[in-house]
Amino acid sequence: MSLNEKFRTITKVKNLGLLTTIVLIIIGMAIFFPRFLSPINIEILGMGFVQEAIMALGMTLIIISAGIDLSIAGVMPFSAIMVGIFLNNNFGITVSILLALLLSALVGFVNAQMINRLKVHPFICTLATLTTLRGVNLVITKGETVTGFPPAFYFFGQGRVFGIPFPIFLFAVMAIAFTYLLKNHKYFQQVYFIGGNINSARYSGINIDRFIIFIYVLNSILAGIAGIITASQYISANTGFGIGIELRVITVVIIGGVSLSGGKGNIGGTILGILFLAIINNTFVQTGAPTYWQEVVYGSMLLIAVFLEEYIGAKREGTGVLKRWREFML
């Protein structure tokens, strides 16, 4: 079992590393910027990253299944725009939201169908829907911003539940549910079989196609929710929403320890990843450092996280044999 123990130590240390870094930043910030731990700032911290956080829940499932979904960056503005249009046409808030989410789900369904039927890499399928959707968004809005949201709609981005901003509350509830479901529910557990060994999944009688549909639809709906929240926050919707967000979401998930080759990872790691980037993001706000640096820091963090995991981890196992090529390539 020594290998087993070794493996566990490495995974533990890895999460520990992330956790330690987070704690250190928090302590450092709390010392130099007392404001940092004030309730107001914590709220700013949460709200600054809540869209990414919500989408990261679904992306975790997608990446564990050895897939990827770029189209969320198109779905998020799409849903924001559609809900605006429906509201402007007096569909009522409930119906508008449901319709927007239904349309978002449809995008996920199309993704899944392409992946299942054409047997093409999810990267390409979702790249195609992303490109198409961005175009669709422009066509619908003619590049203009959608406005005219009724005040009752503001709740989803600005309202409060038990004193907590609604988006954060919603995320917290979903995060708890996702953690528990992924860990313990038979249906959700299928993702580990599909990502870990697709033949095993097939021979165990798992309906792979249906599960792929499930996770891509789920992921799209989450992106749709993020879009609605954004629209409600800004009381407007435009095609500029969500540019680059797919990459931030993927970064969060990867930093959280989900492996792109599938079969490995959990929601807990993703939540740590979210926390980490949210704090970095907030640090910039608090220190008044130019926000331009954010992207550089995100990128470096991603590289460092993966470097530590993959390279140092492999070295530590001490076999002296580098990973086989196919283990890490696309």
Partner: peptide
């Protein structure tokens, strides 16, 4: 030997 998707991202 780190995944090219992540590196170039």
């Amino acid at each position: 030997r780190i995944n090219p998707f992540i590196v170039t991202l």
